[in-house]
Computed example of a mutant assay.
Amino acid sequence: MEQSVGSLQEQALKRKERLKALRDKKLHVSFRPQEDGEPENKKAALEETAEDKHRELKLRNYTPEDDELKVRKVPTAKPASVEEKVKDQLEAANPEPIIEEVDLANLAPRKPDWDLKRDVAKKLEKLERRTQRAIAELIRDRLRGSEEELAGAVGAVGLEEGDSE
């Protein structure tokens, strides 16, 4: 697969043309040459960049004696407080611990029968209500029975006192 010298030269020329086209495209230059051989847009682009470079004179390190130049002097910058920056960085680096959001019950290992207890919980609630009602009913019955016995005892005491009079 040897390539001839002629084909290599042709490839090199094509590469050069592509590179030149890319450079021209980058500068937005049209290929309309003037009398001196320079493209018209290229001259305009060079003039614009020259004007952009000489925008305004800023004097940072030089203290001018001329009054007109003193206006262009940039005021000296005051360094920011290092302590404040370090304090802000330390605060940002140390986030507050989030202990409130952690539920210890979720972290602790569960007993093997936790799912059985969970399933039976509703049934146990019903039974607990029934048990409380039954206990309340038993207490009421005892109070009624003790009232009757108390009334009987009071009546018996009243009869005995009535006999002695």
Score class of each variant (00 low, 15 high):
Lys111Pro: 09
Glu101Gln: 13
Lys126Tyr: 08
Lys26Arg: 12
Ala92Val: 03
Glu165Gln: 05
Lys14Ile: 12
Thr63Pro: 00
Leu127Arg: 04
Gln11Pro: 00
Arg118Val: 09
Ser7Gly: 00
Leu8Ser: 05
Leu116Cys: 02
Asp113Ile: 03
Leu104Glu: 05
Asp66Gly: 05
Gly145Met: 05
Gly158Asp: 04
Leu143Ala: 14
Pro39Arg: 07
Ser164Ile: 01
Val157Ile: 13
Val120Gly: 00
Glu2Thr: 13
Pro109Thr: 10
Lys122Asp: 13
Glu47Pro: 00
Arg55Lys: 10
Leu19Trp: 10
Lys123Gly: 15
Glu17Asn: 04
Leu8His: 01
Leu8Thr: 03
Leu143Cys: 03
Leu107Thr: 06
Leu159Phe: 01
Ala50Asn: 06
Glu48Gly: 02
Asp115Glu: 15
Ala121Gln: 14
Ile99Lys: 12
Ala12Trp: 06
Leu90Cys: 04
Ser7Asn: 04
Glu17Gly: 00
Gly145Thr: 04
Asp119Gly: 08
Trp114Leu: 15
Gln34Met: 06
Pro64Tyr: 05
Asn61Phe: 13
Glu56Ile: 10
Ile99Ala: 06
Glu17Pro: 00
Ala45Trp: 12
Tyr62Cys: 10
Ser81Tyr: 03
Leu27Lys: 09
Asn94Ile: 15
Ala136Ile: 01
Asp88Phe: 15
Glu35Phe: 07
Leu57Asn: 02
Ile98Ala: 15
Thr63Ile: 07
Arg140His: 02
Leu150Ile: 09
Pro33Thr: 06
Pro75Thr: 01
Ile135Gly: 00
Thr131Phe: 10
Ala105Val: 10
Glu40Asn: 03
Leu69Trp: 09
Asp103Thr: 05
Gln89Lys: 13
Lys42Thr: 02
Ile135Val: 14
Glu84Trp: 04
Lys122Asn: 08
Leu150Val: 08
Pro64Asn: 04
Ala45Thr: 07
Asp115Val: 14
Pro97Glu: 02
Arg55Asn: 09
Glu101Asn: 12
Val71Ser: 09
His28Asp: 13
Lys117Leu: 10
Asp67Val: 14
Glu10Gly: 03
Glu147Met: 06
Thr63Tyr: 05
Glu48Phe: 09
Lys78Phe: 05
Glu147Ala: 06
Gln34Ser: 04
Lys25Arg: 10
Gly6Tyr: 13
Ala108His: 03
Arg140Asn: 02
Leu13Cys: 06
Lys78Gly: 08
Asn94Pro: 00
Glu125Asp: 10
Ser81Ala: 12
Leu27Val: 01
Asp119Gln: 15
Leu159Tyr: 02
Ser30His: 10
Glu147His: 02
Glu56Met: 11
Asp24Ser: 10
Ala134Leu: 14
Ser7Arg: 10
Ser164Gln: 08
Ala136Met: 03
Lys20Val: 11
Glu160Trp: 01
Asn41Leu: 15
Val86Trp: 09
Pro79Lys: 13
Lys87Tyr: 08
Arg142Phe: 01
Arg55Thr: 11
Ala12Met: 08
